[in-house]
Design a protein around this nucleic acid. Structure first.
Lengths: 108, 108
DNA sequence: ATCGTAGTACGAAATACATCGTACAATAAA
DNA sequence: TTTATTGTACGATGTATTTCGTACTACGAT
């Protein structure tokens, strides 16, 4: 079984978290996970970029500690690390996702 | 009297705000302004970079709408746009500045 | 009029980032 | 065992970002 590296809760860096959230595509991913709690394969997000770019963005989010990625077969189950984020940076996720545009749903 | 361009309250972009806040030097500036409300000249921040780099970071913050810059003589009075930010992105500033390290005071 | 102070303009260099295409790996299903 | 599905690795490319040094401007003080 393959597995991917994740920073521990206590290792989350604000720099990395904010950099990750500064990109609109990554906010789209995070927003979707927040709006549809649970796990979702990368393909479920209908991102307006190619597969390899998509891989890149998911990795940035994982390495920043924003999401968890667990293999299941060939797919990856992505989920938001809501509790860890709330513990380290209380209010941040809500403040970033709050904003007016709930462009957080898949287009398809 | 010289003056500098600022985005209006309603024009603030989350993208720009988060990108601005993703840089530690700029967070140091914002944190200092939040901790010591009022106006402060650029030189008062004891930033670990040269003057020209400093100018760059202040401009990024101003253009993102995080700070207001008003000339007074040759100096610039910098202040945090707390209310505008709170109106557009409630809770964001507090969430970003909250974190453990109150490294927000000038070193000198 | 000269000098000092506060910050800018401009160009350069190094690094980082977002994006893509193609080839590949791992798993599941047929 | 073949095929389809999901996502990765790698390299390339174009753009942005951070940083600096030097020369400059605007203003206040002498």
């Amino acid at each position: 079984m393959r597995s991917l590296a994740h920073p521990k809760k206590g290792e989350l860096q604000l720099d990395a978290v904010l950099s990750a959230l500064a990109d609109p595509i990554r906010r789209q991913i995070v927003g979707y996970l927040a709006a549809s709690p649970g796990t979702h394969a990368c393909g479920a997000f209908n991102l307006p970029v190619t597969k390899s770019t998509s891989t890149h963005h998911f990795r940035v989010l994982r390495e920043a500690g924003l999401i968890r990625q667990d293999y299941q077969g060939t797919a990856i189950l992505n989920s938001l690390r809501t509790e860890d984020l709330e513990a380290q940076f209380p209010g941040l996720l809500q403040a970033v996702l709050q904003p007016t545009n709930p462009r957080h749903l898949p287009i398809g």
